[in-house]
Amino acid sequence: MTRSKAMLPYVVWMALFIVVPLFLVVYYAFTHTSFNGAELTFANFQRVFQPIYLKVLARSLKLAVISTVICLLLGYPVALVMAGNAFSRKSTIMLLFVIPMWMNFLLRTYAWLTLLERNGALNQLLTRIGLPALNILYTDYAVVLGMVYNFLPFMILPIYSVLSKIDQGVIEAASDLGANKFVVFMRVILPLSLPGVVSGITMVFMPALTTFVISRLLGGGQYTLVGNLIEQQFLVVGDWGFGSAISMVMIILILISMAVMSFFEKSEEGATLW
């Protein structure tokens, strides 16, 4: 087949700009460069496991998990409603979930800066209706809020797309056989929607774990997440070895969480990673 040669430029491109760079990350993570040249070392990884950096990792994991859980709790009902018959023009309404996602990510995060400020719109509203002002800007709450706001559509869309494909006959069959609504949901709809839940969780958890923008803008300078740590190593400190090692640990964390997810998802869809 000569037509398969059409992918040659692409293969060369990806080898050069995707595969080689990833090997370079691995190379830097395992080497220490001194006057005698580069030598193999595990020091970078040992540093990652120092308490101060483990704390950063734990904190990133915690915030990412919290955001993912909130997105799931908020998003699943939305997907369920959208897949039902509460709305007639479904595709138009689904589009409304997509539109905010297409606005610049930085500007969306910046919007919360204006809202959450001490004299911001939210506090103005709260004082007007007689409630105490909230000062959550530059705290974990603001970071989680920013993550949920930015990533919620990523949870809704895959769940919706799976739910809307469920054969109505299966649900009717379950109720004909005497299952009430709750049982139908627990025993039929929920298990069938798991592939969507899994891909939603992945799509929220990954960016939440690796972000450094949301934590930098809404969390203020002192709230460091693993993304900020990597950014600092490369752009401020210049310690590529350590930065590469943290990146690798982060990738491993993601791979583990994806493996766990596909273990939970018993259907064959999405079970293989590579």
Binding site: M14, I18, V19, P21, L22, L209, T210, F212, G243
Partner: peptide, 20 residues
């Protein structure tokens, strides 16, 4: 290989290209 940049965290794509 096509899925690597899609699945890889953006920050890793960023730093790996920077190193390159």
């Amino acid at each position: 290989i096509t899925y690597i940049p899609v699945l890889n965290p953006e920050i890793v794509t960023g730093i790996s290209l920077m190193i390159l």
